[in-house]
């Protein structure tokens, strides 16, 4: 079990960041579901409860999601059900259970860059930006490839568009980690295909997405593009599946994803 020597609930981000940088073992606490499984010895736990980062709100151009928002709020929020064909609620609904999702946070889920993440894959097919306290605001894709540095994820910014999206995860049993997951989106004729749990972290199938954006997709073309996606990305083997199997799943899920988004009108 993890240990915490001290715990602070700072009133502003500056203070939170100060404490975080003070010592190597000082740690931000989200919902603690992941932290508590580890053996980490935390010097000062920094609980962000007082920072009012638990919100989902819309402005003219963006939907803003605070770091302390729970996955359950993401799942049930009317705004997110309405936008992007409800891809975000769809992506988190199979994670363990309601009482679990009521506790775990968006900030931790994104910041941790888990390979198996459902949420990151879905966010990656939208126009998502991550706001970090120190490193500032950047596209999610950049954040994912950036080396890990101590920082605080403050909020997500998702561009408000008529983007239509869908999310598919393949699980060997319900509430298990995904063997593979896929998000596909389309804005006008611009497509994005993101694939996660490869089992390494989610990535965009750039060539396949580009091909799809150029073509008038026929069934044959879609098969070809799905094949392309499974070829341009790399897959690995772990307890949940072999690389070969993941590659095959990728093709199937990408194809199905495209088919689901295809009939949707985004303009």
């Amino acid at each position: 079990m993890f240990t915490i020597i001290d715990l602070i609930q700072p009133d502003n981000l500056n203070e939170a960041y100060q404490i975080l940088s003070d010592k190597r073992n000082n740690t931000i606490l989200g919902g603690c579901a992941f932290l508590k499984m580890g053996k980490k010895r935390i010097n000062t736990g920094i609980d962000l409860t007082n920072l009012k980062l638990n919100y989902i709100q819309e402005s003219d151009d963006f939907i803003e999601i605070g770091a302390m928002t729970s996955l359950r709020e993401l799942e049930t929020h009317p705004l997110l059900k309405e936008y992007y064909k409800g891809v975000l609620p769809q992506s988190v609904r199979d994670i363990i259970g309601v009482q679990f999702r009521n506790g775990v946070t968006v900030g931790a889920s994104v910041y941790s860059k888990y390979g198996f993440s459902d949420l990151i894959t879905a966010l990656l097919c939208l126009d998502t930006e991550v706001e970090l306290f120190k490193a500032g605001r950047m596209p999610l894709a950049d954040f994912l490839t950036m080396p890990k540095a101590k920082d605080i994820l403050v909020r997500l910014w998702i561009k408000k568009t008529l983007r239509q999206a869908t999310y598919l995860s393949f699980r060997s049993s319900a509430s298990d980690y995904s063997v593979l997951n896929v998000a596909v989106s389309k804005l006008d004729n611009h497509w994005t295909i993101a694939v996660g749990a490869r089992p390494s972290k989610a990535a965009i199938a750039i060539s396949a997405s580009a091909m799809l954006s150029q073509e008038v997709p026929t069934l044959e073309k879609i098969e070809e593009i799905a094949q392309k996606a499974s070829e341009e990305l790399s897959f690995g083997t772990n307890q949940r599946g072999s690389a070969t199997y993941r590659k095959a799943l990728c093709k199937t899920l990408v194809k199905r994803g495209i088919m689901e988004v295809l009939p949707c009108k985004s303009n």
């Binding site: 079990m1 915490i4 715990l7 606490l29 919902g31 603690c32 579901a33 508590k36 499984m37 736990g45 609980d47 409860t49 359950r72 363990i96 259970g97 309601v98 009482q99 679990f100 009521n102 506790g103 509430s175």
Partner: peptide, 27 residues
Amino acid sequence: CDTSCCGLCTVWIDGKSRLSCSILSLQ
């Protein structure tokens, strides 16, 4: 369990169901 998987420890916090095994008492 020790991995937030079983739901046996479910209580309500401010009316919402939560895993009491996965939240610090301080929180």
